[in-house]
């Protein structure tokens, strides 16, 4: 009986291994999740995954890019890229008024962003590997970051922490590394494509933990 079971498990694992790896981009709003995902998609498919903006919560629904074949040092892997809306515990439409967004538009944006957070949380279970993108110029000890990273660890989903915006003067990579000593933390600048080799290397390493 156990022989039959292991035979079918073997068959299923063959099919499973052929599936694209679901690579999720999580993190707080405006950390550069879409910028980083765009950079990768553009490098390997020639197309971007979504629009970026200085206004927080530009991504308000989950965005996908299928069949992204990433090659690094002779190795190739196919990913399904999943870019998620930034997770926050509150969204106030007045925050958008500072960016000269009209009141009605700001209210609509806040409502959509709120739905986006709920959608992001629902998707947590479906990821194979997650890149948590943090803004290296901000305080990393944000409870949302800690809760999301802890949650992924509890679900045994491999996590890579990216401290983005290291091109900025205020960026503090060491502070992010000190906040999450149990995880791989790499610094990148999605805007200028800095340190992406290290990113790809870390992602390939991480997929071995699936």
């Amino acid at each position: 009986m156990s022989g039959i079971k292991s035979f079918f498990n073997g068959i299923f694992s063959i099919f499973k291994s052929k599936k694209d790896i679901k690579l999720g981009f999580y993190g707080p709003p405006n950390a550069g999740k879409t910028s980083l995902a765009n950079r990768i998609c553009k490098d390997f498919t020639g197309e971007e995954i979504g629009k970026v903006s200085k206004i927080p919560h530009e991504t308000r629904s989950v965005q996908f890019k299928e069949k992204v074949e990433i090659s690094y040092k002779g190795k190739k892997m196919v990913f399904k890229m999943i870019d998620t809306p930034g997770i926050a515990t509150k969204i106030d439409y007045e925050e958008f008024l500072k960016y000269k967004v009209k009141k009605n538009e700001a209210k609509k944006r806040a409502k959509e962003a709120t739905q986006g957070v709920i959608e992001s949380i629902k998707w947590l279970d479906d990821m194979d590997v997650v890149v948590v993108v943090l803004d290296a110029t901000e305080n990393p000890y944000n409870q949302v970051n800690i809760t999301i990273i802890g949650n992924l660890a509890a679900r045994k989903i491999p996590v890579l922490i990216v401290a983005n915006k290291i091109d900025k003067r205020k960026a503090d990579l060491k502070k992010v590394q000190a906040a999450f000593p149990e995880y791989d933390v790499i610094g990148t600048s999605a805007r200028y494509g800095k340190n992406l080799d290290k990113f790809y290397e870390s992602i390939f390493k991480l997929t071995k933990k699936i």
Partner: peptide
Amino acid sequence: RLDEETRLIGDTMAMIGHVKNFRGIELAV
């Protein structure tokens, strides 16, 4: 528990606009 913390974030976000004067929470551990 970590799943409960995440649920709290999701549930409270879902209540914005449905509970009068509620705009979300601030949370720290």
